[in-house]
Design a protein around this nucleic acid. Structure first.
Lengths: 166, 166
DNA sequence: CCACATCCTGATATTGAATTTCATTAGCGC
DNA sequence: GCGCTAATGAAATTCAATATCAGGATGTGG
């Protein structure tokens, strides 16, 4: 009906990614006849040195501390590359821009987002994943991807007050 | 840290909404010193007559079939109003625009999205909700909201081929 | 080491959803 | 009706994301 898959891309090496990120990227480049470059490396290295959930703008800033001339266009492109080979995962946490998570280990993780301070906490929960699989199966879907985000207020932001629940 | 709550708004009457939507909206307007208007009613009525997951653009089209002069600005504003009193729920399914779900009954529902044809299927799963609650509690969050979306290919779009899984 | 085809880069322009602005119109208490 | 104030919608604006394109970098074959 529409073009829904734009963001939810996923490339070759995905679920069981083990080799070092640089290796995976290099393989991906080679496979597609793409070239390495100083700039590309700078963006990728910087990306993997961040704690996570960076926006493109933030990452551009970080990269420029190392190499001031780098354009945001290239950062966008490199992040897309990383997303294509499963090394970066795009997220929309509702603040108007896409944030990218570096994918370091195999396990998928989901997020708790504090609506007050913006803190993002990661968690894994195999039981939920299992139930999701059941739901998909029941509806005859083959899932490629999923996202789960819980929005609320973290302990610090509630600062003592009790508060409700979902 | 940032302004994360822009989209994930939620107003007064929320979880157990029972009264007719029009009543809830009217109460919300009165409470905030806002006025009813022909246009507002047209947008709200049209919205509740849609099957769901409409984009603003689509809804504007539908509303204009009833009242051609209506501007998209007003549709945006009215949807925000509806979201504020818990009658509409904004979603980002990754196709570049926000889609709104009319909230008719109490139960929260989540979505299966086909990445091929764009079909959106709703489902409810109390067990998952329960596990989500546990996760939040474990991290000392009080959740206000959550979203869970499973992306994959529906039976029709797979057209026989088997395919993998998450 | 060089030439060349091709990819990469980044300034700039463009897109498109969403919001703001603002002059005008409409709702509502009196 | 009167007057206050909110609502409306055309137009302008914002802003993340993408496209364009001239010039630079890269790697290959000779």
């Amino acid at each position: 009906m529409k073009k829904v898959q734009r963001k939810a891309r996923r490339g070759g090496v995905a679920a069981g990614a083990r080799a070092r990120p640089q290796e995976i990227l290099r393989a991906h480049l080679e496979k597609h006849g793409l070239r390495r470059s100083r700039v590309r490396d700078a963006v990728a290295d910087t990306f993997f040195a961040t704690p996570g959930h960076v926006s493109v703008e933030e990452l551009t800033g970080r990269v420029r501390r190392r190499d001031p001339g780098i354009g945001h266009t290239t950062v966008y492109r490199t992040l897309r590359l990383l997303a294509e080979c499963g090394l970066a995962e795009p997220h929309d946490f509702g603040d108007g821009m896409t944030r990218y998570d570096p994918v370091r280990e195999a396990g998928h993780h989901d997020h708790l987002v504090c609506t007050a301070c913006g803190t993002i906490v990661e968690f894994e929960n195999p039981e939920i994943e299992e139930l999701q699989g059941e739901v998909a199966r029941r509806h005859r879907f083959v899932t490629e991807n999923h996202k789960l985000e819980l929005y609320g207020r973290c302990a610090r932001c509630r600062g003592g007050r009790p508060g409700g629940s979902t």
